[in-house]
Design a protein around this nucleic acid. Sequence first.
DNA 1: CTGAAAGCGCTTACAG
DNA 2: CTGAAAGCGCTTACAG
Lengths: 341, 341
Amino acid sequence: MRKTSLNDIAQQLGVSKTLVSLVLNGKAKEHRISDEICRKVIDLAKELNYHPNQIAKGLRTGKTNTIGLIIAEIANPFFGKLGREIEREASRHGYRIIFCSSDEKAENAKQQIEMLLQGQVDGFIISPPNGSEEPIKLLERRKIPYVLIDRYFPEIESNYVVVDNFQASYEGTEYMINNNCKRIACISINAGLVNMDSRLDGYKKALSDASCKIDEDLIKILPFSHEINDVMKAIRELTTNKKNNIDAILFTTSKVGVMGLQCLHSLNLKIPDDIAVVSFDDPDAYKISQPPITAIAQPLEEIGRQSVKVLLGAIHNKKGKMMLHQIMLKTKFVIRDSSKK
Amino acid sequence: MRKTSLNDIAQQLGVSKTLVSLVLNGKAKEHRISDEICRKVIDLAKELNYHPNQIAKGLRTGKTNTIGLIIAEIANPFFGKLGREIEREASRHGYRIIFCSSDEKAENAKQQIEMLLQGQVDGFIISPPNGSEEPIKLLERRKIPYVLIDRYFPEIESNYVVVDNFQASYEGTEYMINNNCKRIACISINAGLVNMDSRLDGYKKALSDASCKIDEDLIKILPFSHEINDVMKAIRELTTNKKNNIDAILFTTSKVGVMGLQCLHSLNLKIPDDIAVVSFDDPDAYKISQPPITAIAQPLEEIGRQSVKVLLGAIHNKKGKMMLHQIMLKTKFVIRDSSKK
DNA sequence: CTGAAAGCGCTTACAG
DNA sequence: CTGAAAGCGCTTACAG
């Protein structure tokens, strides 16, 4: 049972492929094709269960209706949920998603971008790892539509959709200060990426605005690829050294946060009495945690929606003036029991 | 900056496209093409940063090096992690992944399969929703390589990679029985799907083998698309009705389990003292839960690996005899504090 | 109102 | 050892 092609329909009807193509693409009117033939073509197409070969169409038109999504890790719930939203919005517009997990490695992202550049996607949504400026610039040079999410490179003028990390972090830190936390530590990752740096800056600014000392010993930056023992080491250093004397932690990602909670539990530290906790992101785990964890929730649906919208705008507008869309969304501060002293 | 094509290389070198294609596809030897030309072609290709257009290649060869992955929900951590493993293994073999979330709706899966059937993928890995026999049979008729994961249809002779749900469920239930649980409830979903039915059967068999009564009132089956209030309703019914008198719950998925834990907490029921808990799957949330949740962990890496392997086997073997691969893997029972009475 | 023809960028018999 | 040609399944000027 071979797939039916345009030609099959044309031959059975004794008309040209041109005609069939025109009709099936809804261009019958503008070419004033007779209603009778129109109907015949449409009926037969349905009968033969005709679906145009997208590959052939893609080769001819240069459009694939496919978006390349490059994120850190689809297994990371943050990106999983974001991916779902992106898929949902893309699907509304007839686009499919090819996804690649970069593991936050620039080399991976580079290879993945180059691979998908080979005529397979109409554009990219990318959460660029540290050091991946080069492949992004390549997209720029080649005039491939793309939009960055979660972070961006200040030195590259590109479309992006991010959240206001500085403000979010400021708010979370300020809340802890107002809840009588005196020595607030911060465990973060990925130094150098603009989103993470902003989170750190927001934390510092909140402290200094409240006339709290910024103690570099209370700031732990983990390597890009961190595992639970990295988090454990950081927490041990923070909690065993008496002079640190911490009573709260801000986790700047849920991946770190989830691991951090495991560590705190295994060290028998009580939340929030011993250590108050606020974390970026809002995975399921935070809702069922005892106590539930105060979260800085990102508007995943909105990020997904906007990034697809901006990308499709760029795809359809390729020839027109490239308008830059740089969108910064608000996070939502979800207060739960982990941050109450 | 247009992409360089085969023709560009051929023209600059004054040779034919044939030659260039042959060389770049590593068929120089078997066509005894001179080393000198070989080198020239390869060097120029590198210099021009040539990458073959996969779409054109796909049209010609009928191969896209792309796998269609249809799962319930990429935002569901179980499928997210599984997706990651599938991506990893596929990537090792030079394959990309287009993913679609069916939301467990047969109609969605059908549309997604039909869409990707239009020449876009070489094969499918599918977690088929209830009632999606028809599109699966379509693949069968069209001789499209595919492999089912997580569940299968007993009446369709297909490749699949699943876990031994009966045994897993039996083991979890048996463990609770041996831990002095007398009245073990089961909250499940998706009646009719073979994996869920097996989980229920395993639960029942363990009870009857231990001479415990199977009380249908203790079995709650939620609709396909369940939200937390469905779970809440079930748990309320189980716990408020005195004659139910339950002291343990088996959750047959982590999605239900995570919601269930939220409900138990909000009802102020203590785990494991009031209610012991065992759940299928092992999301992060179970590790940081207090107490940590006893889990029936699925071998995600193995499922991912095997499903890709089986699929690629089928793709490469298309003409050969279709050997059926039906793989059933063992789960891992991870005992934690939630199930100790 | 309709069709013949070119071409998207490849691969692959076929011929020499 | 190398090349001309056909063709994958479409779309789209162009011509009438």
